[in-house]
């Protein structure tokens, strides 16, 4: 995998963002018994954050091909 150092660093950035979204008090903000558009907020938040992380990772590694 001949990634540029920049790509690797961006991925580390994604990793740190993941820690912030899922393993910091930020999580507690959304880990509540409330709902939004019929969905439990915690369910929506967890899967939303997850999707965001993997989209960012995908953009980081695949975007560099252009």
């Amino acid at each position: 995998m001949r990634q540029s150092a920049l790509t690797r660093q961006r991925l580390v950035g994604v990793f740190v963002l993941g820690l912030l979204l899922l393993y910091s008090p930020v999580l507690a903000l959304f880990d509540v018994a409330a709902e939004w558009a019929g969905f439990p907020v915690s369910y929506l938040y967890l899967f939303g954050a997850w999707l965001l992380l993997l989209l960012l990772a995908a953009l980081t590694v695949e975007g560099g091909k252009q």
Partner: peptide, 10 residues
Amino acid sequence: PTLIAALWGT
């Protein structure tokens, strides 16, 4: 695994 995958580059 999702998080650590971001570090797979190294």
